[in-house]
Design a protein around this nucleic acid. Structure first.
Lengths: 232, 232
DNA sequence: TAATCATAAATTGTTAACAATAATTGTAGA
DNA sequence: TCTACAATTATTGTTAACAATTTATGATTA
């Protein structure tokens, strides 16, 4: 009747991860085990293990005997995420030093073009996805799988942070700022690339409202089905 | 008969993690679920979840239908670990900029004194533990819990790397190099501190034999009981 | 009418039994 | 004597039933 391939817990982890990272599952969303079983068509232990992984990543907050919820970062955590990203992404550019081929550059430029297209189309979900993906692409082109792993975590946490502290999501990570990083790389000026990256991340942090209400938004009721079923 | 407190999976995770990080469980060691159940006196799912976490950290390699083994890093992974540590630990020093109080400095100096003592005593296990702990202490004194988490992972991976690629473990992370970092911090010279850290990590990397045999050491038979029971 | 306590429903956490897969050992044949 | 095949054993993976904890609802009392 449907997909018999019997999703592995890794795949479930990925799916939920992606839904959180692309903001289809907002902070505070309850992740009821039974409901997830229905959605993915697997038994509870499988779901449980996937949730454990997410909880270990800090994307999901697991309260004993209460259940799992999409994490709602605090102001301090928000600042920390951005600080850490600056540290890590400077490292990414260092790791790129010996890997800036023409292919690399055209891949990056192609990506930025996609970002511009999504922005023109007004496709918010796609825009969010691509903004994060740019940073990931940079990391994956670099010579450090470990840094890329670390950054994947950080980017997904950033998404949560912006979901909480940036009510109007139009002030996203802009393609132009990404372009200026790539331009610097194209010139071989890595110091400039690092500065551009730093400025870009600081800019993103400053668009957030990190003084006001820590939390207070109501928990949505049942977005799970819609959020998790799509395989964008 | 013994500890009834019923270890939580988090505690089990910590115990195994620590045993790996302190090199009591060498790379390649098989982690048989049933055996671990006996040792910790808990049921299999509990062990399973702990192993999943470790596997997600990359400290344990989980082969389907085969079981879990302490990871044996490759040469490329070894280099990557050290590269990433340089990136992250430079960030740690940045994060320390506003936190260098007298208490901080005396804590660091006290730690180095402990390291010297352990080295004098010829206590290898303690020396390994304290070497890693110095870097962790630095990270915990900094204002970034996230960086500290990331570094914890990296330090434990470093331990695996040195276990594989440094047959003679006497050429460890020396207290003197740690001292020169702290001295720079005491002077308020953060650039010097970063340089010292970089040099220290490069030095550590260079003492490894990263050209020769990738793997070839036999798997030890049953060190689990001895390695995990001790609560050092 | 509001607040508190008790009961009931729902959800997570745990345990135990079962099935499937892979490794090892032993045997038979060349 | 060595190789290949088969059977047994051991270990992981899965499923299902059970227990404990929490939350919500409703009734009773002040």
């Amino acid at each position: 009747m449907s997909d018999a391939p019997k999703l592995t817990e890794q795949q479930i982890y990925e799916r939920i991860w992606k839904s959180i990272a692309e903001r289809r599952l907002p902070p505070g969303t309850r992740l009821k085990e039974e409901r997830l079983c229905e959605i993915f068509g697997v038994s509870r232990p499988r779901i449980r293990r996937a949730l454990d992984q997410l909880s270990h990543d800090g994307l999901v907050c697991h309260i004993p005997n209460r259940g799992a919820f999409v994490s709602t970062p605090s102001v301090d955590e928000a600042r920390d995420v951005f600080f850490t990203r600056r540290v890590v992404e400077r490292g990414v550019i260092d790791a790129l030093k010996d890997n800036v081929s023409d292919d690399t550059l055209s891949a990056l430029k192609g990506h930025i073009e996609q970002e511009r297209q999504a922005l023109r189309d007004g496709d918010t979900s796609q825009t969010i996805r691509l903004s994060g993906a740019f940073h990931m692409l940079l990391a994956e082109l670099a010579a450090s799988p470990l840094l890329a792993d670390i950054l994947r975590d950080l980017v997904s946490k950033s998404t949560l942070v912006t979901a909480v502290f940036q009510p109007k999501s139009d002030t996203q990570c802009g393609p132009d700022e990404h372009a200026s990083i790539v331009d610097a790389l194209a010139r071989g000026d890595f110091e400039a690339a690092k500065s551009a990256m730093d400025a870009h991340l600081l800019e993103a942090e400053h668009t957030l409202q990190l003084e006001a209400s820590g939390d207070g938004q109501p928990f949505p009721t049942d977005v799970l089905g819609a959020a998790l079923t799509e395989d964008t």
